[in-house]
Design a protein around this nucleic acid. Structure first.
Lengths: 242, 242
DNA sequence: ATAATAGTGTCTGTCAGACAATATCTA
DNA sequence: TAGATATTGTCTGACAGACACTATTAT
């Protein structure tokens, strides 16, 4: 991590005091081995040895999403095919970092299943961890447990009314593969026949014309996300309410 | 506005560089004269004379929601009955403030109709402005037009699946008063009979036992929000999709 | 009585959930 | 052939929207 400039670039006539260290943290989710995983790093200083989210300080003239993607590349040194990136929330409780006032803008990112990431310069190592083993526990440095929980909840919620689920899939995918995304992220079973009817009557998929038998059985039609898709699924696919 | 401390409180063994001026901005919404209004201030320096959202820099050991409420009080010097406060989004595009790197955490706040606010120390004046006259135009300082638009859209959206609408109402209110909130914020007409059936069968209202004739006609039962309400309206009340 | 608003009952079209039935592949 | 998965079709109960109807106040 490269520390940013300590001094404010004050313009003539104005004097602005810098009052915090601004960072970004990234909750990068994917599905591996039929389970939802989040990318974590082994921290060096501070909190050496603890697991934490990838992230770091924002550079002086860098926009926030750019900082998120840069830190993801720096710390994992793997070309991650980030298919979705959205701002999650900002965490600024005093004392959340022992060094100073560090305020972190968290981002939620989604990627399809990819090869194992390798450690970069800043991190001793980076690895995918199953989300199930993290939720409810206190396993991560700083307030990163909370950030992961918020990110997972955002993803679960957005599956209902957006096309986010497709970001977990390769470019071309079958309806059943998309259904498995929903089942894994929501932790529920969905009726394959009703799901198929619902998704093919939604407006964001288009058939590629190809079929595949990679899941066995009768060949399944391959679909892709329409280029003119809005990102909103209409009508929504609502979760069961307990 | 009191500028925060310029130096980082570095702890032994660590050195952290402060890289931005962190601020909060507040989108405070209410309904006055059957229209959605947002609270704006007349800026002093910089952007003197322009309209802007109330807000200011975060103090060294201050939590973000506290900073939002403090700035609201400082700049409008009126006891605003803030009935809802949630983080909206963080705006950090380089160059959004001409002085320096200013990153602002925006908050959405809701209040019932209240007496006219008066100017405080930091602002030349504060006043309610109809949201209709702002949306789509470029009327405000910095990127505050965008922030207002995002705040209004969040409010519109949350009416569907949360109890947010009640935050626009006094403590005790009738179903018709709540319905008018929905009609004004959404800009649509709702069937009074279906709305009544839907809201009274939802789980977040409880009757006070009192009635009122303040809207004329047959006395209407008064309701309040249940103390154990979750904030989530179940089932949701969906807007018409065009 | 008339006007105004509150609240209830009923009908109908749509849709989610359950599930039968059929289609097309591999072993 | 059996077994697996894909896809279509059908039934049913719940519910949103439309709206007739009744209730209770003020003038």
């Amino acid at each position: 991590m490269v520390p940013p400039e300590p001094e404010a670039p004050a313009k003539p006539g104005f004097r602005v005091w810098y009052n915090c260290a601004l960072a970004v943290d990234i909750v990068l989710l994917t599905i591996r081995h039929e389970q939802l995983h989040v990318l974590l790093i082994n921290r060096s200083e501070p909190k050496a040895g603890q697991l934490a989210l990838p992230g770091g300080f924002v550079l002086p003239d860098e926009d926030l999403p750019d900082a998120a993607l840069r830190e993801l590349g720096d710390e994992t040194s793997v070309r991650v095919d980030v298919r979705h990136l959205e701002q999650l929330q900002t965490y600024g409780r005093p004392g959340r970092d022992p060094r100073a006032r560090v305020v972190s803008v968290a981002y939620l990112a989604i990627t399809p299943d990819l090869p194992e990431p390798r450690a970069g310069t800043d991190a001793v190592g980076a690895s995918w961890r199953p989300v199930r083993q993290l939720l409810g526990r206190s396993s991560l440095a700083f307030d990163h447990d909370t950030i992961v929980a918020d990110g997972v909840e955002r993803a679960r919620s957005k599956l209902e009314y957006s096309t986010l689920g497709a970001a977990f899939c390769p470019a071309d995918f079958t309806v059943a593969e998309l259904r498995r995304i929903y089942e894994i992220v929501w932790g529920t079973q969905l009726d394959p026949r009703n799901f198929h009817r619902k998704l093919t009557s939604a407006d964001f998929l288009e058939p590629t014309g190809e079929t595949t038998t990679r899941d066995g059985g009768r060949p399944a039609a391959l679909y892709r996300v329409r280029k003119d898709a809005t990102g909103i699924m209409n009508p929504p696919l609502l979760r069961k309410t307990d």
